[in-house]
Structures are given as C-alpha cells and as structure tokens.
Design a protein around this nucleic acid. Sequence first.
DNA 1: TATGGGATTACCT
DNA 2: GGTAATCCCATAC
Length: 202
Amino acid sequence: MKLNNSFYQRNDTIKMAKELIGKFLYTNFDGQLTGGMIVETEAYMGVTDSSCHTFNNRKTNRNATMYNQGGVIYMYVCYGIHDMLNIVTGNEGDSQVILIRAIEPLKGIEKMIERRGDVPLKRLAKGPGSLAKALGLKRIHDSISLLEEEIWIENKGFKFDSDSIIESPRVGLGCPEPYFSMPWRFFLKGNAYVSGKTKVVS
DNA sequence: TATGGGATTACCT
DNA sequence: GGTAATCCCATAC
C-alpha cells in the first residue's frame, strides 16, 4: 500500500530513513511505470545540520521546498549536472529531508535503460544522480506530491531485521565535524545495488 | 556583477 | 586514482 501523510509527517527523520529501506519507489510519467526497492538512504536533519541546505535557517528559491510539510519531494541539481531526489519529512516549517541514494530496479527496466543509456543493471539506479535519471526525475519536479500519480512509495510488507540495515557516515560531504561523521546513511547489507563503499563503520 | 564550489558520475590511465 | 562536465546560489566586491 501507498505510504501517506501519517508516514511522511512524523518528526523522526532518522527512523524514517531506516524504514524507507525495503520500501518500493515508483514514478509514472507519460504512462511509463518505473521503479524498484529502496536500498540506500541518507537523512539530512535541517537547520542544525551543517551539511544540510537549510543549515542556519538558510532559505532560498532553491531550498524553499524543504520547509514544506512532509509528503512532497525536494529536487536539486548537484554539480550542475545531476538531479537528486529527496523526501520531505515532518511538519510545515521543519526542513529535514531524506536523500534516496539507490534502488534495486524492478519495474520498467527497459524504460530506465532508455533514459540512462546502455549501462549494466547493477549501475542502473545506483547513486542519487543515476537513480533520478533512471526514474525520469528532474529539478522541474521539485515540490510535487508523493500522494498523487506521478511518484509514490509503497510498503509491500518486506521487513529486515536491524542487523541487515547498516549505518555509516554520509557520502560526499564537505562540512565540519561533528556532522561530517554522523551515521545518518543507511543501506541494505550485502545488496549489490548500494552505491559507493559498503564497509561497516562502527 | 563576478567568482567559487558542491549530497556526482563516467571515462581516462 | 585523476579529472572534466556544467548550473544554481552564496559570498564578496
């Protein structure tokens, strides 16, 4: 079943980032259904998190969507090239979001290959830039709802015990400690579609 | 108004 | 492992 506001509008973004592992993310643009199982996420914890776009209450045209109430998406462009998909969580005025970093492709694989070019299945939606491209998501989709027909997340009842969800520091940050090392990245242990290093940091 | 850098990826050696 | 591609926004004049 489709996740709704009772999931997205809670105030525990770290817990939600963990819970999104094993959920199913879909997009449906122009009648083309594409998607797969979420295997890697990162939590960005809002105005106190120095790696977060809203650190120090920063508010610009780019990041305004992060302050919306949970249940919409925040899209932003990194390095001028890559579009990134974030799930907005919590209440209006909060700015915590969850970056979706990788899915295991399941639906519309042909269409995703068409969008991505000829890459191996293992790399089709591995890493946030690749994932957004495979699903047809761009900056112009910023602020669209997860409760409508273009993008949504489903719970299919898959459960993983806590040993299977690995925590690690987030990837690619340039911010100072302590946020640099906060263990706010989560991924499914041993899954071939997780990006980057999968080494366990304890 | 100008400049520097980033939640990355792909392709090179 | 090194680096180019390439755009929005923060910061500095």
